[in-house]
Amino acid sequence: MVFAKKVKKIYCLSVLSLFSFVSLSQTLTVGFIDFPPHIALHEEYKDSPLYQYINEVFLQADFNVVYVKLPRERAFTELIKGRVDVLMPTSIPSNHETVRTLSFPLFHTVPGLCFKKENYIPILSATHRFEKLNIGVPAGSQLVAALTDSQANLIPLKGEDVTSRGVELTQRGRLDAFYHPSPVKVYHQENPLYKEVACSYFHGYSTPIYIAIANTMSKETFTAINQIFQKAMLEEPYEYYFAMRK
C-alpha cells in the first residue's frame, strides 16, 4: 500500500516536472487572426478581450509567448510550416481538415442576415418573410438550410471584400439583405458599419471556433497547452468572460 502510494507520488511529480520543463523551456509563437470584436488587429490588439484571456492563460503556465498578427490568407500556411505554434481564432477550413485543434472550442459563431435598418427582420425562423427578397450571399459559401429552402432570390457576391460589397449594395437598395457567416464581426458597437446595417441570426446553426495547433508541436507541449486551456475554460469559459467584460 505504502509502496503504491510512493509510486503514485513519484509519477505525479514526474508529470508535473515534465509540464514545468515543457513550459519553462519553450517559447510559443501565437498567431492572431482578425476577428472583431474578439480581437481587432487594426487597433491595439492587447486591448482585445481574446488577447487578454489567452495571455492570462499562458501566463499562469509560465510559457514564454510571442504574439504575431497574421492576415487570414497567410495564417494557415504559417501554421502548417510550423512558423507559428498556435493560431486563433479560427474555424477549420475544409482544405485544412488535418490541422489539430485544442479539444474545447474557444467560442461559437452563428450565421445571419444583415439588413438596412428600416427593413430589419428580427426573427429569422420566419422564413416566409424572405419571399422575393434579394439576398446577397458570398459566392461559394456554405449556407444554412433555412435560407436555401426559402423563397429568397440568392444573389452571389464576388470580390475580395464581400462584406463591404454587401453593405454597399444593401445601402443602395440593390439588395434587401446580405448573408454573413458571422455577423457579429459587422454588427457590434465598435464597428462604424454598426450605423449602416442591423443583423439578425440563424440561431441553432452555430460553428465552433478553435485554437489551432501546428502539427510540428510535440505531444507533450500539446498536452500541456490543452490541459491549461481546458482548466481555464472550466473555471471561466471564454464566452462568459467576453460577456462579463466592462
Partner: peptide
C-alpha cells in the same frame, strides 16, 4: 452563464436605437 452570454450576444441589437421591436 449561458443566460448572460445570450443577452450579451444581443447587446448590439439592444443598444441599436434605430430598431424598435428587437424580437427578443
Amino acid at each position: 452563464q449561458a443566460m448572460v452570454e445570450v443577452m450579451d450576444d444581443n447587446k448590439a441589437l439592444l443598444y441599436d436605437d434605430e430598431i424598435g421591436f428587437k424580437g427578443i
